[in-house]
Each structure stands twice: as C-alpha cells, then as structure tokens.
Design a protein around this nucleic acid. Structure first.
Length: 268
DNA sequence: AGCCAGGACAAGT
DNA sequence: ACTTGTCATGGC
C-alpha cells in the first residue's frame, strides 16, 4: 500500500478520466475515483490542485506519474496550440485534460470495442471482459486479460461479454498481437501513415480506431482520430483543416476539441 | 418506441 | 476511389 499527495496545477481528474480515452475508471465519491494503473487498483481524490493517491503495493509513484504523463510539458504544448483562436477557446474550456499513457494491448482491444458503440456500454463490455477472462488481483479486482488468454478463446467463449459483432475483431487483434504480427516499435516510430496501415491489418481496425490506438496507446500525439463529433467540429470550425503548427500535437488538440464540441454547445 | 452510439466491412457503383 | 446497407446490443 502506498499513499502520497502531489500538487498539479491545470489538471483535472474528472476531465482526464472521462473524456473518452479510458474506460475502467469510476467515480466512487465526491471527487474520488477508482481505477487501474498497470492493472493494479488505484484510488485518487482531487481537492483543488492537490491530488491524493492511494494504491496497491506493487505500484510506485513513478508508475503513477508515468500513467498520467506528468513528465510531459503541457504548459508548453498548450501555449503552442493556443496560437490558434479556436483551440485557445477549447483549451480555456477544458484546460485540465491530459492524454494518458495506457497499455497498448488494452487500448487496442478497448477501441475495437468502441466502434459504433456508446461510452457506457463500452465500459460495461470491458468490465465483463476483465471479470470473465482477467486474472484476479489480491483484493479480488480483475486485471485486463492477457493477449495469450484472449488469443486462445473463440467467439462463443466471448458471448458473456455481449460485445456483439465485435467479438471476432477482438480475437483477431489478440491473435495478431500474440503472434508478433503487430510490431509495436513500428507503431511508435514509423511515419503516421505507415503506422495506421500496420494497425489496419487487424480486422475491425479502421482509420478512427487506428488513430485512437496510436494516440492513447503509442504516445503518438500526431495521430488525429476523426469521429462523428470531430467531423462536425472540423466542418464548422476548420473548413480548411488544422493549421500546420498544430499537426505535431494534433491528437492533444483533438482531445480539447472533442470535449469542447461535445459539451460546450458551440456547434448548435 | 425508436434513434443513435468516439465505425468498419463488404458489396455495389 | 466514393456510396450504401449491415452488423449486435443497449443507453437514453
């Protein structure tokens, strides 16, 4: 058991954990959240700019800082993005968002499940996936299933998670990853187009899911997932596309724009 | 009750 | 290369 507190200006747990980039965190109290880092349970409370962490033994402070990417200089990134007027407003609206460093495999499977689906049901499917096929932690909580476990299952085996037509996609992803057909190093270092193509060799991974996996699971801040909300926002706010200086951080810009477009009412 | 959900695929132009 | 119907399931 480890406990510690840190001060983190311009950071919001609420925005970061519920902007749609991760699916296994829950609100368990007033500004208190329960989730997993490296598959181990973590409880966090935010009071103003202070964060109070409480985690299972086996986790270090450095694991937790890494997950939240506290080493990434968001102040500088926001300063660059704010040179665009629309992004200036979006950042002001949702300044506390950070892109997490999540496990690649969990991100891959989670965003395959996300296609043509809503966030609450995505979370439910993932929860059932963990409960049915993940190892148990000491406290009885479930880990995310390993590639080895998932790749050995059949579509029928997956019926309890009620993922519908996505079951065969989950299995194809697990098998391709387990066999080594998916090269994580390539995904992290190759030109964006090549990384996207590589991921799209998986059944059920198209352009949008590929960009989500690259952004959320491979630290590819240049990946720009286009979903229905972003497409709507782009049509009205950026008819000529994003400015060039945004492109290296297009994915982070996307998170601000996604939240801004969905919840501010600016598109209505 | 019906529409839609952080889409992708296959078949058809 | 673009367009359309289809895919399971359930939240709202």
């Amino acid at each position: 058991m480890i406990e510690f507190a840190v001060e983190m200006p311009n950071f919001s747990l609420e925005l970061t954990l519920f902007c749609g980039q991760c699916f296994r965190w829950k609100r368990v109290g007033d500004n208190v959240y329960l989730g997993y880092i490296r598959d181990l349970p973590v409880t966090i409370k935010q009071v103003g700019e202070k964060l109070f962490f409480s985690a299972a033994s086996g986790l270090t402070q450095s694991d937790i800082f890494d997950y939240f990417a506290f080493d990434v200089d968001y102040k500088s990134i926001r300063a660059v993005l704010s040179n665009d007027r629309v992004l200036f407003n979006a950042i002001e609206y949702a300044i506390g968002i950070r892109v997490l460093r999540q496990s690649f495999f969990e991100t891959l499977i989670s965003f395959i499940i996300s296609q043509n689906n809503n966030i609450s049901r995505i979370a439910g499917i993932i929860e059932r996936l963990c409960e049915n096929f993940g190892e148990d932690n000491l406290d009885g909580s479930s880990r995310f299933p390993t590639p080895e476990t998932l790749s050995s299952l059949s579509v029928d085996d997956l019926s309890p998670i009620r993922s519908g037509f996505r079951a065969k996609y989950i299995l194809d992803a697990a098998r391709k990853y387990q066999s080594g057909a998916i090269d994580e190093t390539l995904l992290r270092t190759a030109p964006l187009i090549d990384a996207e193509k590589h991921l799209m060799t998986i059944m059920g991974v198209g352009p949008k899911v590929a960009d989500c996996v690259l952004l959320f699971g491979c630290e590819r801040y240049d990946a720009f997932p286009r979903d229905v909300w972003i497409n709507r926002a782009m049509q009205s706010l950026y008819p000529n596309g994003l400015p060039d200086f945004v492109l290296p951080y297009a994915g982070i810009a996307q998170q601000f724009l996604f939240h801004y477009a969905r919840t501010s009412g600016i598109l209505k």
